[in-house]
């Protein structure tokens, strides 16, 4: 338990009368790529934001490597939100410099070579780049850190299939044994081959947690098919 990278105990998050996460108790180990799966609006993004430290729990606890999210956890947690969070006036190069400045675990040569591979002009302003390129650039920045926990919120939604493949391959090739990647998505068939474990989330709680291979053996179906069954209206 104490070496869990992400842990929640009785986690509860509500906005006024609306409960988004209720009584969640999970423990995610190191060295795994884990899928946080569920339909839109079930609380996946909220859980990730709580882990990233930009939301605070209403009740209960969330711990990242045993600490409540603070400036120390932020130095080893790499977060990719669903949005473009870089200023349009920045260039790719200045974004790399910015990350390099603040994050000791950032590898700028790796970032630059991935960008070159993508054909991104390092000195072009970000607002001149296409949406797909910006998303890939953000992924490159996030994955160029040697973090202990990567939080990827819907990294492949709203992106064309070629970009999806690029993103999945980047995640795979970045895999390190002592780090954990938590990917939240509703596009399950694309991602399930990349996952070690998965969690099904619904209405603010976890309804299933298993390894991908274990579930395939047990139920004889892909996680995508299993998902459709579990979530059938």
């Amino acid at each position: 338990m104490s070496d869990a990278v992400l842990e929640t105990r009785g986690l509860y998050k509500a906005y006024g009368p609306r409960t988004v996460i209720s009584d969640m108790n999970i423990s995610l180990p190191a060295g795994k790529i884990i899928g946080l799966l569920g339909p839109n609006g079930c609380g996946k993004t909220t859980l990730i934001k709580l882990a990233a430290g930009i939301l605070t729990p209403t009740d209960g606890e969330i711990l990242v490597c045993g600490r409540q999210p603070d400036e120390v956890t932020r130095s080893f947690v790499s977060y990719l939100p669903e949005r473009t969070y870089l200023s349009g006036r920045m260039t790719a190069r200045s974004a790399v410099d910015y990350f390099s400045d603040f994050y000791a675990d950032f590898d700028s040569s790796r970032a630059h070579s991935m960008m070159a591979h993508l054909g991104v002009d390092p000195d072009a302003k970000l607002k001149t780049l296409s949406k797909g390129t910006k998303e890939k650039l953000q992924l490159i920045l996030v994955m160029s850190r040697a973090a202990r926990l990567y939080l990827l919120d819907e990294p492949i939604g709203g992106v064309d299939p070629a970009a999806r493949e690029y993103i999945l391959r980047t995640i795979i090739s970045n895999y390190a044994e002592n780090s954990t990647v938590l990917i939240s998505t509703h596009l399950i068939s694309d991602i399930e081959t990349v996952l070690d474990d998965f969690l099904f989330m619904r209405s603010g709680g976890i309804v299933m947690q298993s390894s991908v291979d274990g579930a395939r053996e047990k139920y004889g179906k892909s996680i995508d098919e299993l998902f459709r069954e579990v979530y059938r209206c």
């Binding site: 430290g53 932020r74 977060y79 473009t84 603040f102």
Partner: peptide
Amino acid sequence: YRSLYTDEGYLTFTLPLKTHQ
């Protein structure tokens, strides 16, 4: 406003700094 309460806030608030800093 822009660096804290628009989408750029996702970058600013996840920097390894204390909030008051």
